[in-house]
């Protein structure tokens, strides 16, 4: 199984990568390649030009700036999983990264890669949406910031223009009294989710839910925020009754696909179950 022929380009700066993207129409950025190369081998994707950005220096980093964590686009899932900054300040991203594929894939796959691939059943996109993360996109006319809610547009489609690349990924430093959980229902541990839920819950000093951010993966063309669930939590003491009642709203506004691992109806039911479990787990993780 070998890809169709293509030209291989290796820019030495991100600016150069953008120029190449702009110049060649059927071109594609290659980062970790853990999705793209498989698709090319199956001949389901056949770019004429591959722009390999993995040699560009300085694109793998994790740093804290203000109330944000800045992540270089080529930062691998393994680095995200094990970064002390992310583990301490935004543990849900670490948890999501740890559930991707397997060790070899996490060693090679990158955060920008999985975001740009925009598979609605992938682990990081769902979490990124719950985090209200940001992507810094770079094009030939400059940079722009795209919010997570605007970034995912459709199955495997993002708001990036064809000649834009991701320069940086940003997620918030989570406030105190916040608990998070990323869980998924999958046949095997490392599989793409049948349903995935990312939950971020912040309580106020009276242990009333100050904010709730719940996103669901694998229930529509993009990861989706469970807005009705969130609304049913905010302003309330999160008793189990509240959580159960809120979770029952998780199937509102979703349009799950059907495949051999789960029908649309099953996914809708599982969205409720896993929303409930994610909220419970997130709540249990809020430190005193």
């Amino acid at each position: 199984m070998i890809p169709r022929s293509f030209e291989y380009l290796r820019p030495s700066t991100l600016q150069e990568a953008v120029q190449l993207l702009d110049k060649y129409e059927e071109s594609k950025i290659l980062a970790g390649g853990q999705s793209l190369i498989a698709l090319m081998k199956l001949r389901l994707a056949s770019p004429k030009y591959i722009i390999d950005i993995t040699r560009i220096p300085g694109l793998s980093y994790v740093k804290e700036e203000g109330n944000k964590i800045l992540i270089g686009p080529l930062t691998t899932h393994d680095t995200v999983e094990n970064s002390p900054i992310i583990r301490n300040k935004c543990p849900i991203l670490s948890e999501a990264a740890s559930r991707i594929g397997d060790q070899q894939i996490r060693n090679r796959g990158t955060i920008a890669g999985t975001l740009c691939h925009a598979d609605p059943s992938a682990d990081v996109p769902t979490t990124f949406l719950a985090l209200d993360g940001e992507v810094v996109a770079m094009g030939k006319d400059g940079e722009r910031v795209i919010k997570a809610k605007d970034f995912f547009q459709d199955f495997f489609t993002t708001a990036l223009n064809p000649n834009e690349v991701v320069k940086e990924v940003r997620v918030p430093v989570l406030p105190p009294k916040t608990g998070t959980a990323y869980i998924k229902h999958a046949r095997r541990e490392g599989d793409f989710a049948i349903v995935a839920v990312a939950a971020i819950i912040t309580l106020d000093e009276n242990n009333v839910c100050k904010s709730a951010s719940i996103s669901l993966g694998s229930v529509g063309p993009t990861p989706l925020r469970a807005v009705e669930v969130e609304n049913a939590l905010v302003g309330k003491k999160l008793t189990d009754e509240v959580i159960v009642a809120a979770s029952e709203l998780a199937d509102r506004g979703i349009s799950p696909p059907s495949d051999i691992h789960g029908s649309a109806e099953y996914r809708a039911e599982m969205a409720k179950v896993f929303t409930k479990r994610a909220i419970r787990l997130a709540l249990s993780r809020i430190g005193g």
């Binding site: 199956l42 397997d102 046949r187 095997r188 541990e189 490392g190 599989d191 793409f192 495949d259 051999i260 691992h261």
Partner: peptide, 16 residues
């Protein structure tokens, strides 16, 4: 055949 790659024909791993 719908289980046409190892994404859908599920070999159990050491975790299963």
């Amino acid at each position: 055949l719908l289980a046409s790659t190892f994404m859908d024909y599920l070999f159990p791993t050491a975790l299963e």
